[in-house]
Design a protein around this nucleic acid. Structure first.
Lengths: 335, 335
DNA sequence: CAACAAATGGCAACCGATTGCCGTCCGCGG
DNA sequence: CCGCGGACGGCAATCGGTTGCCATTTGTTG
């Protein structure tokens, strides 16, 4: 059952290997009759071109790598899903790499894969800017949910989203909000905090930042406690996982959400709509982000642009039950 | 910045390429002094072996493909995560393929990847047995959450789990259960129904099956309605997504869970603990399943066993709020 | 000290494609 | 009838390694 090669086909068809090769990858270069014949023989032999051999000389592997900072976070699934679909649609293969929140692992893996993929999707990269730039000098790179001057990137809109979020809280009567920050090396965390602080200043709210916290449910306990010490009536968690952890801790401590404290998150992960109370959060088409990132990578292989594209995918604030008027009486279930 | 090859190293070190090659892949074959020298030169030149070239001749790509029937299902995330970690630990790369619930796509993709990966992990494959066997004749394959005679497999224990589940319901006083089945081509669906029916018979319960339903939240509505028509007081959904959909629909229809109807699911996805009421479900270490599958694949490359291993990862029933005594007064929140 | 084996390094074929360049054959215009 | 250019097919080098086999050196043994 050894699979057949271009040589087998060439021999069986009575032509040279170059002709077989061209019949597949450069059809106009061979006569119509010959091409038909070769293709027919190839089909009969069940010939399947070997991607490795092809890649070795053509330097195109038709593979892209997606590096995520933490595969545990359900939010990335959407990203991955979108990327996988777009890649598959163009006959590309997606390899998945989990950086486990470690810049070192991230770098190591990228290094390891350079020769075997055509480009990298770096989702929520924890890499310092200079390292990213250096990386991009040697490889095709699209960063996701991070903006780096000079690099192609796709981010889910969040500046305007943060503004809306703070506006929403202000309109409910909150006067003091706390941002429960994500990891120190997270560009998103910095960017969100800037937007929140800006919006708060505009609207005359007090804004504080606590943290950093790991963007996990487990960290939510500490984050909730920190939030309470600030006296703020609204907590903006770095992401939904953290927010859900916060909700849990608040429930344990007997703090009512949203009457005592409002809580909002980011990402609108599947569970955000299911937890109690349902989480107000900034959602968006994450799959589109992944899709767009692959798209950019693929087109950048055809023609290299002068200006690397910076895409923004729209987001929207999804109001649910975890935000409300501060001090308002708790919902009576059934009322 | 063209990366250096084995030739560059050989020249710089004043040895033959074969020596360089062996210094890396067969260290005992060269003298210690030479090896050190070559390695030193290689390091200085930043030499990195080209995996493609290596794979072309060695026929080992150090890559495994994971094919999932539906990447949308969060349950697979854990599987993927475990697989990725185990693969990375051995210096292997994980490529991810979404079969989109289509056996055709599944087959197509496997075909496409045969030459570029060392083996396949088939998670919840929808492939007919004969196709799987044929596939396994040509490739290294481990099936996940499916048992196929003659194939290596890893499944999360569920027969005993179903028994416990039915036992749990029986002990609460239920006398009639309905299984809301998964896709027709799902081995799991068939296997679970068999276990449920068996356990029900043993315990003197009435068991019915409805469906098949797509294992998604969206299908939960239809599933819930179907369940209600049976008059059963307990519904066992094919997975948590379906169960969550069922809970939603029941809430919409004003049916109390668990007092009117108990609901249980499978997988214990993250959201299962967050929905209202929290879902009783059969959970387990899904990441271990993925890990084990890769493990089996990798060891099967070293020595091919006579008997393909069939692993079972333990599961456990996680009791939460969606199951209870039928007809018992609803929980008064706050009481 | 001769003879022989083990250790070590090099030569060159090979994995399975792609591709630049050349030769042949054909049709066509002059 | 000769010459020219385009279409088509083949030769062989190349991508970057691996590996079987041979040659040389070195150490060992009788």
């Amino acid at each position: 059952m050894k699979s057949s090669t271009i040589y087998d086909v060439a021999q069986a068809a009575g032509v040279a290997t170059s002709t077989v090769s061209r019949a597949f990858s450069n059809p106009d270069r061979v006569g119509a009759a010959t091409r038909e014949h070769v293709l027919e023989v190839a089909r009969r032999l069940g010939y399947q071109p070997n991607p490795l051999a092809r890649a070795l000389v053509s330097r195109r592997t038709r593979t892209v790598a997606m590096v995520v900072s933490d595969i545990t976070n359900p939010h990335f699934f959407e990203l991955i899903r979108g990327a996988e679909m777009r890649a598959k649609a163009s006959g590309y293969t997606l390899v998945l790499v989990n950086a486990e929140e470690s810049p070192r692992i991230e770098l190591e893996q990228i290094h390891r894969l350079t020769r075997s993929v055509d480009g990298f999707l770096l989702a929520a990269s924890r890499q310092p800017v200079e390292d990213l730039l250096q990386l991009a000098a040697g490889h095709r790179v699209v960063v996701i949910n991070r903006r780096v001057p000079g690099l192609a990137s796709v981010v889910l809109e969040h500046a305007e989203g943060c503004r809306q979020m703070v506006g929403h809280l202000a309109s409910l009567g909150h006067t003091s909000v706390v941002y429960l920050a994500g990891p120190r090396s997270s560009w998103m965390a910095a960017s969100r905090w800037a937007a929140i602080r800006g919006a708060a200043a505009e609207l005359g709210l007090r804004a504080q930042r606590m943290g950093p916290f790991a963007p996990t449910v487990a960290s939510g306990g500490a984050a909730a406690d920190a939030a309470l010490t600030t006296g703020a009536t609204a907590a903006i968690a770095h992401n939904d996982l953290l927010a859900i952890g916060v909700l849990r801790r608040l429930a344990d401590r007997g703090v009512q959400v949203p009457s005592d404290v409002s809580v909002v998150g980011f990402d609108d992960i599947f569970a955000a709509d299911l937890c109690t109370p349902a989480l107000t959060t900034l959602g968006g088409a994450h799959a589109d982000v992944g899709r767009a990132a692959v798209e950019i990578l693929l087109t950048s292989m055809e023609q290299s642009r002068d200006q690397p594209p910076e895409l923004t995918v729209p987001s929207d604030l999804r109001l649910r039950k975890s935000t409300g008027v501060p001090g308002a009486p708790a919902d009576q279930p059934g009322s």
